[in-house]
Amino acid sequence: MSLLEVKDLKTYFYTDAGCGKAVDGVTFSVDKGKVLGIVGESGCGKSVTSLSIMRLVDLTTGKYEGGSILFDGQDILKLPEKEMRKLRGNKISMIFQEPMTSLNPVFTIGYQIEESLMLHKGLDKKAARARAIELLEMVGIPEAGKRVDEYPHQLSGGMRQRVMIAMALAGDPELLIADEPTTALDVTIQAQILELLKELKEKLGMSIIIITHDLGVIAEMADEVAVMYAGEIVEKATTRELFDAPKHPYTIGLMNSIPDVNEEVDRLRTLEGLVPSLYDMPSGCRFAPRCQFACPECEKERIPLKELEGGRQVRCRRCEQ
């Protein structure tokens, strides 16, 4: 059963430069206990998608222009802010890329976890502290009883990310959104954090949306993958299917851009050109200007996401035949 269903989500930003269609008709769902990976490069709309689910898009410039986000059957986009606050950090929580900027430097980590427990779970100070220590132990912080009184700057990057995860777990979330959770970390620490997330998922039975630019992280974590490009999903498949046989030219290009440790090539095959500007999208296929297979047909109209055999989806004319 789907825990989260995002249907035709459109999040636009209105600025002096015009209307930026950051997320333009994105549809996906996440099943209970599963991990969905969203992968793409800067500006593809992956972070705005996650912020939309948390309803954290800055509404001074941004606007939810359409679509729905059903969480447990309830449309998040229609919830009053008061109800949303109950959900946020509770049933849905999020961890961010840079734990140092998302933790408050002037409060102890214990205080910051307790705050959320008292707010969402109604625990008193003592119970909250006990639970905070328990959570810190759960995310593998050694000497949690002592560390609970430390400040963020006293911890290493990996430890800080563990604290962020502990904080996100405080509300017993059913859905955890992890936005580039390991991008700022070293490889050996990245491996530890990914291992921790996998363990916690098994133990707590939560669903995870992991957002990253790193296909390697996706391969390790995700059951299903959505590849985003210029505000759209261009390909969606199970992780195995995607890596065994990528279909969309963008996905293929992305994979070719990463040197493989097990293979030797003289030259990397690259995707030429740049991502189109949010304010000036091609009217047809948004990838056409960089696509080696593009033909005049591609530039005529927007390409729909087509379902292929086995349920995988691709947004490309070539894959229709």
């Binding site: 491996a191 390697g216 390790e220």
Partner: peptide
């Protein structure tokens, strides 16, 4: 050994050989 085994691999599903280092630098 640990550093190289920590590279996320997109080609194989076998992560069992991963050497997970404990602790921080």
């Amino acid at each position: 050994k640990a550093l190289l085994s920590a590279i996320p691999n997109i080609k194989s599903e076998d992560h069992s050989k991963r050497i997970l280092l404990t602790g921080d630098i």
